[in-house]
Design a protein around this nucleic acid. Structure first.
Length: 407
DNA sequence: ATGTAC
């Protein structure tokens, strides 16, 4: 049974669930910077997948009182995972999984969204009616209210990105659990519009603090203070973007399920036995240690007692469906994945395409040089990461990928 | 991560 270790801090305590996993020096330095902010409630919690990120480390939980740090939430507001268990089993799957991969790629726009004049596959030309209806029912009104005050948000990819995957480490997978049941798993966030919202408020925070930015250990830790217009607007905007991200994942999952249902040769199946949709890049108002605060989980998942969460490994590694243990010292949180061991550039330098092909030989996935920065060797050992957080979550299901779609 | 400009 693991527990946290204390990292030397010039400010509030830094409690780290990192026993048995590497902790890079640049991550420690960043944690110490964050711990010095005057707005932290109680302490900072560090997850075993921690690594350097813009502003604050990815894989950390930062509770604040009276302020919020937009760059700590990050540019992919509401980024997270969605998973469903189906009633299909491994023996229902065809020998060649390529057809299934193509069907999923066809059903969900993925990849870069190019400029307006160029052809692109990353957004809807014409969003399906289901997407437009969800937008109108849950997102349109809030978006108009934000656009009234922030007209720069008007011309963003918003509706045309609802139900689309994106690029980088965003993916869709078909997995098998320990009982050979088929699952669908996907990773995505709030796409273009969430990115723009984040950029706008990261700038506002720096401007609002212009007079005393020099007092901060890092300019990217600039915060918006409660009582200011920008603080209230950011909280409104970030919650809206998080809802966009959640619905984005829901729509993609619906399209994956219906696309696979349309494949010839598969039996009828259900996909509603176990459904999980969780953010791992977000802010939420919660109560911890007898105080209302804003909890920023940057690469961390809520793990309250009984909460279901998703912890993906990497291409070719295991992923986990977990149940939270509600550990108060972690602000009821767990890691969001394996965490990078190597930066994208370092991974591309260190490994060859042949290394990647060997590491992913059991997975129907991209095997070109464009995904070398996502190769399994670029990530920490997921088993060590899970062991280090044994007092934060219990493992409910262990999944292995058989198909992986990347943007 | 995303969009846009180089």
């Amino acid at each position: 049974m693991s527990s946290y270790v204390l990292i030397d801090s010039p400010g509030v305590p830094i409690k780290a669930w990192t026993r048995g996993v590497d902790l890079a020096d640049n991550a420690i330095e960043q944690l110490q910077n964050t711990a010095r902010l005057p707005i932290i409630h109680s302490h900072i919690a560090v997850m075993p997948d921690v690594h350097w990120g813009m502003g604050a480390t990815i894989g950390s939980v930062i509770p604040t009182v009276g302020a919020v740090v937009p760059a700590a939430v990050g540019v992919d507001i509401g980024c997270g995972m969605c998973a469903v268990q189906t009633t299909l089993t491994a023996r229902d799957l065809p020998d060649s999984l390529k057809a299934m991969r193509l069907v999923i790629e066809e059903a969900v726009p993925h990849g870069r969204t190019a400029g307006r004049s160029r052809r692109d596959k990353g957004s809807w030309g014409e969003p399906p009616r289901r997407v437009t209806n969800l937008w109108k029912a849950h997102l349109a009104q809030g978006f108009e209210a934000l656009c009234d005050r922030y007209p720069v948000l008007v011309k963003t990819n918003n509706l045309c990105h609802l139900g689309t995957l994106g690029t980088g480490n965003h993916f869709i997978e078909v997995c098998l659990d320990e009982g050979e049941r088929v699952w669908f798993l996907l990773h995505s966030g709030s796409r273009g519009v969430g990115n723009r919202i984040a950029m706008v408020f990261i700038e506002k925070a720096k401007k609002d603090m212009a007079g005393h930015l020099g007092d901060l250990p890092d300019q990217n830790l600039a915060y918006l203070s409660e009582g200011s217009v920008h603080y209230a607007d950011y909280v409104e905007a970030v919650l809206w973007a998080q809802e966009f991200a959640r619905i984005n994942r829901q729509v993609m999952m619906e399209h994956v399920v219906s696309a696979v249902r349309g494949m010839k040769g598969l039996p009828r199946f259900e996909a509603d036995r176990m459904v999980v949709n969780c953010h791992h890049n977000y802010v939420a108002a919660e109560r911890h240690f007898d105080r209302e605060c804003l909890v920023t989980r940057k690469g961390a998942v809520r793990a309250g007692a009984g909460d279901l969460g998703i912890i993906p490994g990497s291409m070719g590694a295991k992923s986990f469906i977990v149940r939270g243990r509600g550990n108060p010292e972690s602000f009821e949180s767990c890691s969001h994945g394996a965490g990078r061991a190597l930066s994208r550039t370092a991974a591309k330098k260190r490994y060859t395409l042949d290394d990647h092909i060997e590491a992913t030989r059991h997975v129907e996935c991209r095997k070109d040089s464009g995904v070398l920065d996502e190769t399994p060797m670029a990530y920490k050992d997921i088993d060590a990461v899970m062991k280090a957080q044994a007092d934060l979550v219990d493992i409910v299901h262990t999944l292995r990928q058989v198909v992986c779609v990347k943007g």
